[in-house]
Simulated scan of single mutants.
Amino acid sequence: MDHIVTVQEAVTAFEDFMEPTDADLEAIERELPLINAEIGLLDAQIIVIDHTPTELDVRRIRRARRRVLAAHRDLVNGTAGRTGGVA
């Protein structure tokens, strides 16, 4: 008969290394506008899953796609999160 044992000691030995670093958190914060834009696009697509898209639905999805592209452009160009004029 095999005995089931816990691995608590093995898991808690690496507990200090399991938390995100400051660099990880900064990267997430930098990508947050893109993440939010992608969530908006997903929401717009979910709305039309069970029915034929109306003109309003099509516009909503198109605007959401533009927001994703703009957020991605800003992230790649390094302007995400900056306020004011042109970077």
Rank of each mutant, 00 (worst) to 15 (best):
E15M: 08
L41G: 01
E26D: 12
R60Q: 15
R73S: 05
I49C: 06
H51C: 03
T6I: 09
I35R: 13
G84T: 04
T54Y: 05
I47S: 02
A13C: 09
V11K: 12
I4Y: 07
E38D: 11
T12K: 15
P53A: 08
A23V: 03
E9Q: 12
I49S: 07
A10Q: 11
V5N: 12
R82H: 10
D43F: 00
T52P: 04
A80Q: 01
L25A: 08
L69E: 14
T79G: 04
Q45P: 00
L56W: 06
D74F: 02
T54L: 04
L69W: 06
I28L: 13
D50E: 07
M1L: 08
G81W: 10
G81M: 13
A23M: 03
D22Q: 05
E19G: 03
L42D: 12
R30A: 05
I61A: 02
R65W: 05
G84S: 07
E29D: 14
G85D: 08
T21C: 07
L34F: 03
A13K: 14
D24P: 00
E15G: 01
D57T: 04
V48Q: 13
D22C: 00
L75R: 05
R66P: 00
A27C: 02
E15S: 07
V5A: 10
Q8N: 07
G78V: 04
T54D: 01
R62E: 15
G85H: 06
D57N: 15
F17S: 14
A13H: 11
P33V: 08
E29R: 11
E31A: 12
R62P: 02
G78D: 09
A37P: 04
P20F: 10
H51K: 12
T52L: 14
L41S: 03
L56T: 06
E55C: 06
L75Y: 12
I28A: 03
R65H: 06
M1Q: 10
L75P: 01
R67T: 03
R62T: 13
D50W: 01
M18S: 11
I46V: 11
E26G: 02
L34D: 01
A70N: 12
N36E: 14
A23C: 02
V86E: 12
E29K: 07
A13N: 06
A70F: 03
G81R: 00
T52E: 15
A87H: 02
A71S: 15
A10W: 09
R67H: 13
E38C: 05
A10D: 13
A80K: 00
V86F: 10
A37G: 00
A87R: 13
D43N: 02
L32F: 09
G78A: 06
L34Q: 05
R73I: 04
A64E: 04
R63E: 15
D74A: 12
G78H: 01
R30G: 04
H51I: 04
E9S: 13
T79C: 01
